Simulated assay, not measured.
Amino acid sequence: MNHTFNNILFLLAAGILMAGCIDANYEEPVAGRTEDQLLSNVIAAQSELSIFNELLDSEGLLPLLVSRQTQDQRAVFAPTDAAIEAFMSENGFESADDIEGLENVLAYHIAEPNIMQSDLNRTNYNFIQTNADQDIFVNRSGGLVRFNNQTVNIQRSESGNGTVHLIDEVLLPRSNTMAAYLDENPELSIFKQVVELLGLNSQLSANFRTIFIPDNQAFADLLAALGAGSLEELVEMVGEDALEEIVRYHIVNDLVYSANVSNSQTLTPQFTGEVMPMISVDGENVLLTYGEGHASATLVSVNDDIFQTGFVHTIDKVMLPVLEDE
């Protein structure tokens, strides 16, 4: 009994002693919290970014750069004063108010999450998510990193609770869409009809698409070869499922354009069949070879205009996939 009583007294004394050691002002540290400068302060400290800083403030975007104190949250690709002044002059703008969708243009320079230059140098790094709800496509040409197929030099990078990259160009969200491109080019009207018939319109607005579109003459040649008098007859002959496979043989879930094509490069379309198309570069001509033994070829009219979601190129034949024997 005495031993039990002594043990209780010892525990009570120990508890009192520990309570006396508790710091009344103790706060649990916030996980990931950093003492690094807020990005807004980093930008304000750069004399070359005074215009960019003023525009962020005027458009109410500074809260994006001051609301977080955790590490590695955002990156800013900040055009220098010289870059903004050159952009204004080239476009005949007298003031920033002349820039259509200024807030969205500025938000296009704010990326999430944080991106460092080492990320951009990785060959498999293909896009940057921005606060403008549109990605920046990253590609490489001649050893240079390009944004949206545009050469952009990062003059230097400054660190805070994220990264500020000082760049020498103004980045613009892409406004042109694949659907509008089809509307504006009557020689591609049959492909447009096929897409609408099959309910594949969403492919025109899905990110990271390259579409090789056969022109109307290519479809006319196909109809003649199959003995079909119209698109409707073609559907009756092959069926909608087979026609969709043909269309998906022309859609690649990747970005393909002159800066990143190489001879004998194999493409992986949405429907591959047994033989995937292959790029063949012959002098200034770019061809796609396909069919048994890649014996067939179609000439590619390369279009390096970048759309909101990718690239569109025109070809002069409808490529028919090689199907497995049933």
Rank of each mutant, 00 (worst) to 15 (best):
E94Q: 13
D97L: 13
A111C: 14
E112S: 15
Q117H: 02
A83D: 03
R140F: 03
A86R: 05
G142A: 06
A96G: 07
F147Y: 12
N124L: 11
L120E: 02
Q129C: 11
N148S: 03
N126W: 07
R122Q: 13
I110T: 00
R140I: 06
H109A: 04
N104A: 07
S118F: 06
V76G: 04
F127P: 00
Y125M: 12
T130W: 07
G142Q: 08
M116T: 13
N91P: 04
N104C: 00
N104T: 13
P113Q: 11
D81N: 15
I84W: 09
R140E: 04
N139M: 04
L144K: 15
M116S: 08
T123Y: 13
F77I: 08
D98A: 12
V105K: 11
F127V: 02
R122P: 04
T80V: 13
A78E: 12
L106P: 03
A96P: 10
E112D: 14
N91Y: 01
E94S: 11
P79V: 14
F127G: 04
N126T: 07
L120Q: 00
M88R: 02
V105C: 08
F93P: 01
R122M: 12
F87G: 09
Q129H: 15
S141P: 01
L106A: 05
A96T: 12
A75R: 05
D98T: 03
N131H: 12
P113T: 04
S118Q: 09
I84Q: 09
Y125W: 10
D133M: 11
N121I: 04
D133Y: 10
A132T: 09
A111D: 06
D97R: 13
P113K: 11
F137M: 07
N121A: 14
F77T: 11
N124G: 06
V105R: 14
E94G: 15
N139D: 14
D81R: 11
I84K: 13
E100T: 09
N91L: 01
I136S: 00
I110D: 02
L120Y: 01
M88S: 05
V145I: 13
M116D: 12
D135H: 09
A75D: 09
G92C: 03
S141G: 05
F93H: 06
L106D: 07
G142I: 06
L102S: 10
G142V: 04
D135R: 14
T123L: 08
F87W: 09
N114H: 05
G143Y: 06
I99S: 02
N131Y: 13
I128A: 02
R122C: 10
I110R: 02
P79M: 14
S141V: 10
I136F: 03
R74I: 07
F93Y: 12
S95D: 13
E103V: 10
